[in-house]
Design a protein around this nucleic acid. Structure first.
Lengths: 204, 204
DNA sequence: CGAGAACTAGACTGTATAGTCTAGTCAAAT
DNA sequence: ATTTGACTAGACTATACAGTCTAGTTCTCG
């Protein structure tokens, strides 16, 4: 278990640190807590990571891709030839469900809370996790427009409006109330359906 | 300057504390910094406020009304009989400008960052600052629908969609990048206009 | 087996902080 | 003029934390 032992410690530290950071925030977390949670001595933490700053930055930069991966997966199953109403209901619901994942909501709050202390982190999250979601979605919308199934001037603007209508309320409620699950599944169904319908109204 | 001197100190502490909290966050702020910034001894701070917790909570609860007041003011000048396009362009632009005020953005980040440490604070902000904006807007939309100028099923849902389309991108960019002014005025013009137009497309 | 690397517990340094305490200043009100 | 109450500077207590150091243990590989 030599190398794998070390790799395991490394991962244990990463996991523990992320968990504690998510729970207590950056300043509210001590290196001793991380070491204890990882079942590892503090010295070992410092062997693997230069300091608290780098540990935090490295862990959270690694989470950047989560949103992107998630959304790419959702959008992949989006180019089906069924009725637009059904397709958009499903798209909206899956999208909403994915972004309302408790884990993702907590990550989002942690990143926002430390956006000024770690500027590249906030920027990375915005660009890799946020703008790429929009361009991915805009691509799909563009294809639907080209196929004449949707009337869209600017696909990127349409994508902005779609996610805005869909996410503004539930994500903000989660951010402000600190609750992991501020809406029931049925409420999410309704929110998704309403956004999908309004979107289709606006774009034929 | 006896009573007024005391009142002035009280306000100086409030102002200084808000400024430092906005700059450094709750945990990043020390009572000594607040006292120094207020030009006041630490003992005086503790004379006026029991502890750091209450100081923070009291100050930020007092800001709850800011959004609401702002939006009420905007919506008041909304019931004019001009062309809908102009009216909505103006509404959207003013709304966007108000919510992208640097001061308001910083407040929002501070509240979100401490939503789990001060749960009633987050809830208050959401309910008094957030939901009331939406119901205020929904009222106006409802009147336009009753007058036959707009086709709206549920005014509250329409209001959600309107602010979502308008604010999702710019507010999130501000939250993640930590920047006070992530968009130029011209970009804000475009964002406002695009949202207003899509909204009108969806609702006749 | 023996060497070297990873690891451990925990002491240690230096700094920061919330909140208290003391001794004394200052300004107005009686 | 004395009292009263707000105020001040700064010392003080108790705690916490980042990061280092030491001395000793365990694991693995040659």
């Amino acid at each position: 278990m030599g190398r794998s032992g070390s790799a395991t410690k490394h991962e244990a530290i990463l996991d523990a640190a992320l968990a504690v950071f998510l729970e207590k925030g950056y300043l509210g977390t001590s290196m001793d807590q991380i070491a204890a949670r990882a079942g590892v001595s503090k010295q070992t933490v410092y062997k693997h990571f230069a300091d608290k700053n780098r540990l935090f930055a490295e862990i959270l930069l690694a989470t950047t891709g989560e949103v992107d991966r998630l959304v790419r997966w959702i959008v992949d199953e989006f180019d089906d030839p069924r009725k637009l109403e059904q397709t958009f209901d499903r798209l909206a619901r899956h999208f909403l469900g994915a972004l309302m994942e408790p884990h993702l909501l907590r990550l989002r709050r942690l990143v926002i809370a430390n956006a000024d202390r770690f500027p590249e982190l906030g920027r990375s999250w915005y660009e890799a996790g946020f703008e790429r979601v929009l361009t991915t979605l805009a691509d799909s919308f563009g294809r639907l427009a080209d196929a004449g199934r949707l009337k869209i001037d600017d696909p990127l603007v349409a994508a902005n409006h779609f996610v805005g209508m869909l996410l503004w309320i539930p994500v903000n409620k989660a951010m402000f109330t600190g609750s992991d699950k501020p809406f029931t599944d049925i409420e999410l169904d309704r929110l998704a359906r309403a956004s999908a319908r309004t979107f289709l109204h606006a774009h034929r």
